Amino acid sequence: MNKGELAAAVAEKTDLSKAQATDAVEAVFGCITDALKKGEEVRVLGFGNFAISERAASTGRNPQTGEKIEIKASKQAKFKPGKGLKDAVNS
């Protein structure tokens, strides 16, 4: 399911038009992104948690040349599913 299909499914389950549902889906993703940029966690009870994980700088190797390269430190978004989501998927 892509973002357009998600918006269509939201529109179908609510009394929103497809355009309104698209705006709502975009707003939810925007709010999650903004919170993660600020270093905040986003917890959705029964669904899961979104958080930022720090990756330390490291030294890697170019597989074609064998040359050592420096890999910069970075941040990654992580999602940990909640019990409600796990139960729904496994039922």
Rank of each mutant, 00 (worst) to 15 (best):
I32V: 15
A88C: 02
A8K: 10
I69C: 08
N49C: 06
E70T: 15
K68R: 13
E54D: 10
A19F: 03
A7C: 07
G84Y: 09
A57R: 08
L85A: 02
L85H: 01
Q64V: 08
V89A: 14
A56N: 01
S91Q: 12
K83L: 01
L6P: 09
I52R: 02
E26K: 10
T65K: 02
I52V: 15
A51F: 04
D87H: 08
E26H: 05
E12P: 09
A73W: 14
G39R: 01
E70W: 11
I71T: 04
K83V: 11
S91E: 09
L85Y: 05
N49P: 14
G48N: 13
F29V: 02
T14V: 08
T33G: 09
G66I: 00
A24N: 06
K18D: 04
K68H: 11
I52L: 11
E41A: 06
T22R: 05
V44Y: 02
N2L: 06
A56G: 04
T59F: 09
N49E: 08
I69R: 09
V10G: 00
V44E: 04
E12Y: 06
K37Q: 02
D23M: 12
F50E: 09
R43A: 14
V28D: 00
Q64P: 03
I69P: 04
P63G: 12
E12S: 14
E54F: 09
D15R: 12
G84D: 03
L6W: 02
A27E: 10
E41T: 13
R43L: 03
S53R: 14
A9M: 11
G39I: 07
E5F: 07
D87F: 12
D87Q: 08
I52S: 02
D23N: 10
A21H: 01
K18S: 06
D34E: 11
K13N: 07
T14P: 07
R43W: 00
A8L: 04
K68C: 15
R61S: 10
K68E: 15
K75T: 05
N49T: 13
L36Y: 00
A77P: 14
E54A: 07
T33S: 15
S17G: 14
A51W: 02
F79M: 10
L16G: 00
S74W: 13
P63A: 07
T22A: 03
R55T: 06
V44H: 06
G46P: 04
R43M: 06
K80S: 10
K72E: 13
F79Q: 10
D87I: 08
G39P: 03
Q20L: 00
T14F: 08
L85E: 01
P81C: 11
K18V: 07
E12A: 14
K37A: 11
A35D: 01
K75Y: 11
G39K: 05
F79D: 06
E70P: 08
Q76I: 06
R55H: 13
G82S: 08
E5W: 02
A77H: 09
Q76C: 12
L16E: 00
